[in-house]
Amino acid sequence: METRPFETKHLDKWKSNLDSCIRCGYCYEHCPVFKDTRWESDAPRAKMIMIYGLLSGKLEPSAYISDKISSCFYCQRCVAACSSGVPLTDIITDAKRDFQGTEFETPGTTSVTNTDCALCLACVRACPHEAREFINGKIVTDTVKCQSCGICVDICPNQAVATHLSYGTDRSSLNQEIGTFLDKDNAKAIVFGCNWSYYPDLQSSVMDPTEDPEYKILINMCGGRLEKPLLLEPLLQNAWGVLVACCPDGDCEHDGNVKAKTHVAALRELLKEMDIDEDRIQLVQIAHGDKTGFQASIDTFMEKINELGPLNNR
């Protein structure tokens, strides 16, 4: 494919913003990419440093850098945490623009379509960011527009959509975490929390397993990308319950909460049909940043689950 040379055309305007970044690192804490690898190179601050390096000529463009910069779920947690008002995601998008079409362009966390695609165009219609297009008989993702929300991954009936890099947010990683946790003695429930709610848990550290927690919070990028089988998986593995946390109505940029609500409602129906208490799957809507509210919801849920007892009791 024809490529164009890399130029910092869109990035140029951000020079002074990047000087105002005090490199405090406050943007790391909740970044799902950093939290997954725990390499500083995957933290939002590193993205800014790399972009600074490109602008100042101290770094040569590379596919490695492009991949790091294109690995972003647009959860905006870094923007909210930034102590200097640096518009990180706008800068990241412009960096992606400058990489687009060059020999270095990489998909990062954006979605890719494989050969199993049946061309049903469901994903094209579902993409909330108009990032999927049907071009020359193929579905193509615009890596600049794509915000890695994963809606297309969930909607594809043929499982033909995937992300090249998922940083622990994909189905198989989450499934694995579910399995590992539920193997523990005291494990009872899985809480799916979206990266938007300031989840009340340790961020970068871990407790040694002296205490056996009853539930585990698994962070995903958006309630909307939790497929039904994944939500059901904990119950199949004998968990006592599943709690799904998503944004309040109207707050989700990808309308993922609408989908999460539909999924959970359908699963509750299913449980009822199977003569299982439907309250074993619940959904709560948590306002952005409401750590206390999230913890309170978890506590109420756990109270209910403990009342219901193990799943084989029904």
Binding site: C24, S41, A46, I49, G53, L59
Partner: peptide, 15 residues
């Protein structure tokens, strides 16, 4: 272990 020039540049500064 990391040795990419980008990693070295990132880890070369602090606040």
């Amino acid at each position: 272990v990391k040795t990419d020039p980008a990693d070295l540049y990132i880890y070369g500064s602090d606040s």
